[in-house]
Design a protein around this nucleic acid. Structure first.
Length: 272
DNA sequence: CAACGGACCTGCCTGC
DNA sequence: TGCAGGCAGGTCCGTT
């Protein structure tokens, strides 16, 4: 599901309704997500004022005075703001109910998402501690990507999706960024040149920013906090466009599996 | 370490 | 119509 643009769109959508508001409680309908929701989370967030809604990589961080709730949407998760009395649909696994009468409702058919709570600095949480730089930060630049790819035999596309190298880039935007940079997805990391690293960092920043501007990409499940789909799908150059003409040169878009993930590229525009 | 395959789960689509 | 198989936006974990 959600890659960085979809998570950021969700963050922006839920923030105004949450910050400064007090929670009533957390209603858990299904604890078995990717990891079971720990039994203490309800008590930790009950009756607390939301101090901030942040994002780190694809994690959403709800800050309270008692600590931080860490939410991941997995492959099929979404968060919506709804009146608390709205009847739950299948796969609505938890509600964070607010004193305002609204609730933040977590929906996730595949249950690859998660909900954690930490009383400590969330940056020290095991899920977040070893993450690389944010792609839209100045810290992620050509030098950083070039250095991270040295000595790596795996395909550059797999490295772009590796959260120890850069976070937030998933299967859609990895293919899209490689197309924009004119780099072949199967190029081994070690063979990426400095110029290609520069093109790739630029392309990643560009494509993620452009996707955020249109509310992200909806393929199947993803909706934003108000239930609306994202519109970046229309702008996708290669993802799920097998056999269709390249928007730049007209050649048919190719597809293959790399690192067990579907990968799309233009064989004419991306020659290594 | 790096690389790789498997695991977690449901829904939807295709083809026999 | 039914059923098996494959596929889907993520990422952790165990094995080599």
């Amino acid at each position: 599901m959600p890659e960085l643009p979809e998570v950021e769109t969700t963050r922006r959508g839920i923030e105004p309704a949450l910050v400064g508001r007090r929670t009533l409680d957390l209603l858990v309908r299904k604890r078995q997500l990717r990891w079971p929701i720990a039994p203490g989370v309800e008590a930790a967030v009950r009756g607390q004022i939301v101090r901030g809604v942040d994002r780190r990589a694809k994690y959403l961080l709800l800050r309270f005075d008692t600590g931080t709730a860490i939410v991941h949407l997995g492959m099929s998760g979404s968060l919506r703001l709804l009146p608390a009395q709205t009847p739950p649909r299948p796969h609505d696994h938890w509600d964070l109910r607010l004193e305002t009468g609204m609730c933040l409702r977590y929906h996730d058919p595949r249950r690859f998402g998660s909900l954690h709570f930490t009383a400590r600095d969330p940056r020290e949480h095991p899920l977040l501690a070893r993450l690389a730089a944010e792609p839209l930060s100045a810290e992620f630049d050509a030098d950083a990507l070039f250095a991270a790819t040295r000595g790596r035999k795996v395909a550059i596309k797999s490295l772009l999706m590796n959260s120890r190298i850069v976070v937030g880039v998933g299967n859609i935007y990895a293919s899209e960024a490689l197309f924009r940079a004119g780099v072949h997805p199967a190029l081994p990391g070690a063979r990426v040149t400095r110029a290609q690293a520069r093109a790739l960092t630029g392309a990643i920043k560009q494509v993620l920013a452009a996707a955020i501007r249109t509310g992200g990409t909806t393929l199947r499940d993803y909706v934003d906090a108000s239930g609306a789909p994202g519109h970046f799908r229309r702008k996708l150059a290669v993802y799920e466009r097998t056999g269709k003409p390249c928007r730049r040169c007209g050649s048919p878009i190719a597809r293959r599996t790399l690192g067990q993930r579907a990968t799309y590229w233009c064989p004419a525009c991306q020659r290594r």
